[in-house]
Write a protein that binds this DNA or RNA. Sequence first.
DNA 1: TTTAAGACATGACAAAAGTCATCTTTTTCG
DNA 2: CGAAAAAGATGACTTTTGTCATGTCTTAAA
Lengths: 238, 238
Amino acid sequence: MAKVEFNIPCTLCEHLKDSLFNGLSPEDLNKINLHKTCISYKKGQNIFYEGTRPTGLYCMNGGKVKVYKNNVQGKEYIIYIAKPGDFLGYRALLGEEFYAASATVLEDAKICFITKDHFFEVLQKNPAFMKRVVKSICHEMGIMEEKMAELAHKSVRERLAASLLMLKESYGMEGEGSTLIDIALSREDLANIVGTATETVIRLLSEFKSEGLVSFEGKKIRVLEPRKLAKQADLIIG
Amino acid sequence: MAKVEFNIPCTLCEHLKDSLFNGLSPEDLNKINLHKTCISYKKGQNIFYEGTRPTGLYCMNGGKVKVYKNNVQGKEYIIYIAKPGDFLGYRALLGEEFYAASATVLEDAKICFITKDHFFEVLQKNPAFMKRVVKSICHEMGIMEEKMAELAHKSVRERLAASLLMLKESYGMEGEGSTLIDIALSREDLANIVGTATETVIRLLSEFKSEGLVSFEGKKIRVLEPRKLAKQADLIIG
DNA sequence: TTTAAGACATGACAAAAGTCATCTTTTTCG
DNA sequence: CGAAAAAGATGACTTTTGTCATGTCTTAAA
């Protein structure tokens, strides 16, 4: 489980186009490049823990990472699954607080790290970059508001359907109408995304399967009937 | 239900100290002051609706406003209760999106409005102000992450206890150890904060009352035993 | 390849919470 | 003031969901 370093110049990063760094001047990009450390992580490795102090920003270059909170009883809720191009840990960094969540690798990942000082330097010199960051954060907040309202008043069945559709949208495999959810999620992880017990997810998933809404391909789930699933999620009335 | 205008210079506003505007130069404060419109709202009046486009920033000068989302079935979830000094609608404004929630007056309110352009002008000229806004937004996000995790895995009883403690902290009456929750909340509103049915809140509240954890004073609730309530909320182990 | 650990699956049961109906109390407004 | 509406309260019942036990299947490591 040793961390392995790698190095790809930011200007050549294939995920730059999906990142908030996109639009930065070559000079700023080079400044970040010069001060970044890039590390390969294996599945199961931890990136940061809730309650610790952030020292910089993580930028995903490959793989998948879950960001989650554990409650007193040890129950986990997955807030977000980070994919290449995503920033990680920027909320605590910009809020100047301790991490409110932990991050662990779901699929072998490559992650770059920029220290707080260098990131803030670039941030403060680029009002346009700052504006993009703020806009992105506010967009995230809107998604969180939506999720809270769902958790408050929707059934587990509805939430599972909604989660599957969200996963399809955000992590759908290229091509094939991107119907395959390209994350090897365990039933337990899926339960911790939906906010329910593992057994409940298992039961509902097999219901969805026998109703022809989804199919299982190895460890992955394919959404066969997005519209019917949307009805199950009560997103559309039909 | 007519809207009544009032006017108080920002520099003399008694809530400036609680506001993100605190720390702004007198010139910038005056710029905002010159371009603001201040209106009195009655209980039940709407400030903005989900799905509409924000045109500026609201700043609370008096009263209480609930910010909430309605789902397809008409069920409401209250995201936040704004009090004097708070900004309202800044998330959609900075995210350049439509409002994701609605806002309605809970207790007769006085609210000032600054157009988007004037707010952005002040924001962009003041990196320190921008930094405070970003910090505040990130802090809010941390609270939302906490609430999502609670909604996902805590019982209604635990969430009600946690909500009462939160309300005591945020809206506690001055003096008296600030044990009185100074909002005239209906049982229905409280249910929509906790994310449950009105009847369930009524039942649990009378349980808390008979257990001596809370008492009712008119339309308001007094927290008698915060530590015992914290145990009910599973915040402390005992 | 074998074995152990972890993931997945299913049944039985209990507990939590929602819904509906009804009634009382309080508030609002003509 | 007095009627109507809204809010609060309570009981009965149903549904949903969580928990525990147990068994099978898959995967990874020795």
